[in-house]
Design a protein around this nucleic acid. Sequence first.
DNA 1: TGCCAGTCAATAGG
DNA 2: CCTATTGACTGGCA
Length: 377
Amino acid sequence: VSSSQSVRRLCVQPEKHGETQAPPDPCEPSQCQPDTPLPPPAPGHAGLSVQEMVAVSPELDTYAITKKVKEVLTDNNLGQRLFGESVLGLTQGSVSDLLARPKPWHKLSLKGREPFVRMQLWLSDPHSVDKLTEMKRLEKKVCVKRRHSSVSESAVLESAVCAGECSEAGSPQPLPREPQAQLKKPRVVLAPEEKEALKRAYQQKPYPSPKTIEELASQLGLKTSTVINWFHNYRSRIRRELFIEEIQAAAGEGGEKGVAEGKGVAEAESSCDGTESDSTAESNTSRAPGLEEGGGPADRPHPHQDAQQGTSRHVGTFADATMIFPESSALSAPVAAAMARNPKDSSLRRKKAANLNSIIHRLERAANREEPNVWEF
DNA sequence: TGCCAGTCAATAGG
DNA sequence: CCTATTGACTGGCA
């Protein structure tokens, strides 16, 4: 299966699943592939690799970052595909997901933070939009050219714009790739009833035993692996929904109520699998997803690396990022926008207070160490 | 082994 | 074209 994938990735992925192993990386930026400006050359950061920047990055406001990115992309008519492939090294679907549901910084693993650092970097690059626009133009040109000239010399053009995704709808020729091009197993699409059944099962037992899974699979006529995958995906997507609430609560209200209270689980659950209103209106079932309920086997954030949370964790504002990623100060705008968009009565006031705290916090930190202070309040 | 975080990539819908 | 959704897969971890 992966054979086809790796082929496409070559262009953009610097070290794909290399995970955290990526050391100082000499060829990280765009050296490997000429004309493939994937990892932004980290402007003004003395050759720090993105991984390194992630390691030293202050807490970033993932929500504000994605908000701004979405704004810039739409304002400039730039697609997620192009942005993802040339800036983040991710596919369109992943970008969409990331932009729509950014996880709070402190819940992200090192690897998960990478895209956000890249976005931050991208936002702070005054020419980011121009570059992408130029790429878009170039890409289109190559596609047109290829469509007209015979497919032969496409290889040459390929490297010029990499990817050259002009196929898709136009010419459905994902490369003749080897003999059994038909060996691709069709994507499983669960029927609404099947999903409903699985959701019901989930409500009873978020972590079904192998036996239960087996039963479910046979009852629904699905492969057990499909059922297993479904549970994994469902759990993690629900979890993510909760993060979002947390992030929005934090953005909306400055403090008061502890942000991460078990509340909201219900809504999150019902809106989880994207198809929002899909649950055919019969959602009378007092939603009681095993999540957190009484602390059963249910979830439990996972002792990843989310150590110091819970308490007074000063949620990063863009200003923080600015300390390491100068020039990004202009980004505080989205924060303000985010504030405004949530007409929660006094939320604005609280937000301001939080902002003040943030400033104080930064001043304190600056007093304790030397940091490139290029802030703008 | 099982779980999770991240992703990919097929596909549905605009 | 583009974006959103989602089943499946990879790699790390306990």
